[in-house]
């Protein structure tokens, strides 16, 4: 994404009547059924929207696919919501399908994201390995949030950190994906981390 707003907008015949807000993107990742949609819905000002993002099963790492991105054998649902910070700034939350084979789509979703929240179900920790690896590899600020199903988690945070083998600098929190304040605080952890990165 090298194009700037001016470079892209300049081709239009006239400026739009309405000045759109600056979109800021945050990614919500994690395995299937871990609570991504619930978390997005708990804080989004709109009902989470779903769009079909379609790729082939053999997508990841196959060069040919880049020439035929509409060729479809697998359709995955990507959920997202948004939050208007002020008329000039809007936060978008994209819930990514967590499975490893959707790596190709992650690049599409994650490009330009300020950070990510990886949601884990402590009963199924291995579901989030792919997401943790991905964000570590990409150097994107991320935090891990253990969703407290029924108000509790199966393992302590120390156990989760050990099991996931995430770096000490990666924040680990327990949250409730259904609770607005809880989701807000988890997102704040990610944003504070992203802000700390800007200070070098």
């Amino acid at each position: 994404m090298t194009a700037t707003e001016t470079a892209v907008g300049a081709a239009a015949a006239r400026p739009a009547a309405v000045r759109p807000p600056l979109p800021v993107k945050l990614v919500i990742a994690g395995g299937f059924g871990v609570g991504k949609t619930t978390a997005v819905g708990a804080i989004s000002e709109i009902e989470p929207l779903t769009t079909e993002a379609a790729i082939t099963e053999v997508a990841a790492g196959v060069d040919d696919l880049t020439h035929t991105p509409l060729k479809t054998t697998t359709t995955v649902a990507m959920d997202f919501g948004c939050l208007t910070i002020d008329p000039t700034l809007k936060l978008y939350l994209f819930g990514t399908p967590g499975q490893e084979r959707f790596g190709f789509m992650w690049d599409d979703l994650v490009e330009g994201a300020v950070g990510a929240l990886v949601i884990v179900d402590t009963r199924r920790l291995d579901d989030c390995f792919a997401a943790v690896d991905y964000f570590e590899h990409k150097g994107i600020p991320f935090a891990v949030a253990a969703n407290a199903f029924d108000g509790r988690v199966e393992h302590t945070l120390d156990e989760v950190r050990w099991a996931l083998d995430v770096a000490e600098g990666v924040p680990l929190v327990v949250f409730d994906a259904r609770d607005t304040g809880s989701v807000r605080d988890a997102l704040l952890v990610v944003l504070e981390l992203a802000l700390a990165r800007t200070r070098g």
Binding site: M1, T2, A3, T4, E5, V8, G9, A12, P20, L22, P23, V24, I43, L83, I85, D86, L89, L91, G112, A113, V114, D179, T180, G181, S182, R184, L187, L188, L191, E192, A194, L195, R197, T198, R199
Partner: peptide, 27 residues
């Protein structure tokens, strides 16, 4: 079509505004 500048990710003032906006959300 308005494509956000990729520098937004590194823009501390933008991040601070998002943080302030989020903090204002009541639980």
């Amino acid at each position: 079509v308005h494509v956000p500048d990729s520098g937004v990710v590194q823009d501390a003032s933008v991040l601070r505004r998002v943080i302030e906006g989020l903090r204002a959300i009541p639980d």
